[in-house]
């Protein structure tokens, strides 16, 4: 079984987000970038399926600038077998990403696509569902458990108020939630090995996909700032304050 894992290079989740003074976006110059945490979980899940003997090949694909190569190498370090980078400096919207990934899926013919439920930059939570729709493959989002047997994936999903388990016929698209697994740390020998794995560079023009943005970003601003309030001396003073603030 072959698994395709889309991965995205994003601002590291521990880095403070700074909005540019000209309101054109978030400042990404000279800050730490990492693999989107939900994608890391997706790669880990694919590697575990390979270690169980269910998957035979894992292909990591990324759409992004030349540096997104590092993101693919991270996936190869965790245990993916080869990578594809669709190199572009353009910001690609979820619908266009889904269309590009559909083209990749048609060329690669995976049995399963596992990807993060959302990227922590755009926070859209849309690409996986769109890809499933365009491919007309079943979808199971927000996965906290995946069991593959008899051509079907049993996916336990995190939904409001509990869990839901769906059976999806393969090929299918699964998006990951936090509880699915804890990604392993990269070991030095694996990092060395990853650098020798095949990594193919493609261009947007290699695919017949319209990636012209549909949305115009007028501005990116900082949310209203919170200011530090007051220090209270003890619990009684705290409760008195909360009562007068009307929240107790």
């Amino acid at each position: 079984m072959k698994i395709l894992v889309p991965v995205k290079r994003v601002l590291d989740y521990n880095v403070k987000v700074r909005v540019k003074a000209d309101q054109s976006g978030v400042d990404l110059a000279n800050v730490k970038m990492s693999m989107n945490p939900f994608d890391e979980i997706a790669v880990e899940e694919a590697v575990r399926l390979k270690e169980k003997g269910i998957a035979t090949e894992i292909v990591a694909v990324s759409i992004g600038p030349a540096q997104a190569k590092d993101t693919i190498i991270t996936a190869l370090t965790i245990g993916a077998d080869r990578g594809i980078l669709i190199q572009t400096d353009q910001d690609i919207e979820p619908l266009a990403v889904a269309k590009l990934l559909k083209a990749v899926a048609e060329a690669e013919q995976p049995d399963l696509i596992i990807m993060g439920k959302q990227a922590i930059d755009g926070d859209n939570n849309a690409t996986g569902q769109m890809l499933s729709t365009l491919l007309d493959w079943p979808q199971a989002t927000f996965a906290s458990k995946v069991v593959v047997e008899n051509g079907e994936a049993h996916v336990t999903r995190e939904v409001d108020g509990g869990l839901q388990t769906l059976g999806v016929k393969l090929p299918a698209v699964i998006t990951t939630d936090l509880r699915l697994n804890e990604p392993r740390y990269a070991s030095l020998p694996n990092i060395m090995k990853a650098k020798k794995k095949p990594l193919e560079i493609k261009a947007i023009t290699d695919y017949a996909v319209d990636v012209v943005p549909r949305l115009k970003v007028l501005k990116v601003t900082e949310p209203p700032k919170r200011t530090a309030g007051i220090k209270v001396a003890d619990a009684a003073e705290l409760v008195a304050n909360l009562k007068s603030a009307g929240v107790l």
Binding site: E93, P94, L95, A98, D123, N124, N125, A126, T127, G128, Q129, M130, S132, T133, L134, Q139, T141, F142, E158, V159, D160, R214, L215
Partner: peptide, 23 residues
Amino acid sequence: ASSAGKNFAPRVAALLDVSLLSD
């Protein structure tokens, strides 16, 4: 934007070939 809404909304957008305005 509940878990159910987030689950199907992008599909509606993709079927209509439009963007999803999320959240």
